[in-house]
Design a protein around this nucleic acid. Sequence first.
DNA 1: AAAGCGGGGTT
DNA 2: AACCCAGCTTT
Length: 349
Amino acid sequence: MTSSTFSDRLLAWYDQHGRKDLPWQQNASAYHIWLSEVMLQQTQVATVIPYYQRFIEKFPHIDALADAQVDDVLSLWSGLGYYARGRNLHKAAIQMQQQHNSQVPEDFQSLLRLPGIGRSTAGAIMALAFHQRFPILDGNVKRVLARYDAINIWPGEKHVETAMWQRVEELLPSTRIANYIQAQMDLGATLCTRSRPDCQRCPLITDCQAYASGDPTLFPVRKTKKQQPVRQTNWYIYIHQDNHILLEQRPQSGIWGGLWSFPEAAAQVADNILPVKNAVFQSSMPEIKHVFSHFKLTIHPHIFTADPINIVAENNQHIWVKIDKALTLGLPAPVKQLIEFLSSTERML
DNA sequence: AAAGCGGGGTT
DNA sequence: AACCCAGCTTT
């Protein structure tokens, strides 16, 4: 049996459940559609609506916008974010006034030359305003497509995005292009949402590969989160004859606030700024890697023996403490790990 | 606290 | 071409 096509099912769903009452869908001119599409970049419908309404009231047509001061445009944009969109909108209106007879140009290449209009926004205007067969590839469409095809690479990858543009192109219907483009946006915005897609109501459930795989929210796959920064630190483990070690209390705020740790230096430092004078270097231990939420720390522990004559006086920040007693203090995990190791190998030192 | 988002600007 | 950025929302 042949099931109906992707676009047929989407259009049938749109007829029943699509959004048809949005402000820019009433008496829609190309100007209204352009304005709404720019406002909808990076911004949700519910946020856009009041801004859109104030905007068209003050600037009901392209000439009103082109003749305005940019500051007046921006004041109506205030709170929407991405203010370059407002500046570009104003610039584009002037360009339309001067070069396109105060109209939104009706061809794709001219649209692309206007500031603030890229490939997806140009496609939306061509389809929604001029009923020409152009695809869009915004965040909603990317999500729907990544699920429909179970694309297992992050869509930000150049080759994936190129393939997706090709895919949205081939899925286009030959009729009802404006409804279809609106349907794609509506499906992504209202049903195929990021975290809680309502697959049971989805017209694409029968051949959605992500649904078939069991968990559609695994798509689109996330950007591999960028490598957390790695910081290096040196820890100085001073031991004196009676198996005492020198610990230092960390500042109350910040990493491991208030816990006891070894004297520390971010890089190799001269002996004379270490807290113990004339200590004798014994050995360096293997590095320890510790992972925090926002960075990785590589710890280089170095063991010194210290003559009690040369030890610094105890104070609020520094204590000499017997190794076994140290284990009863508040210690960061890697400090505890190191001290436990020292405790087990005391005799060898 | 972090990810997502279309287009523009920079390297 | 490949990166970074903008500002607000959602998770």
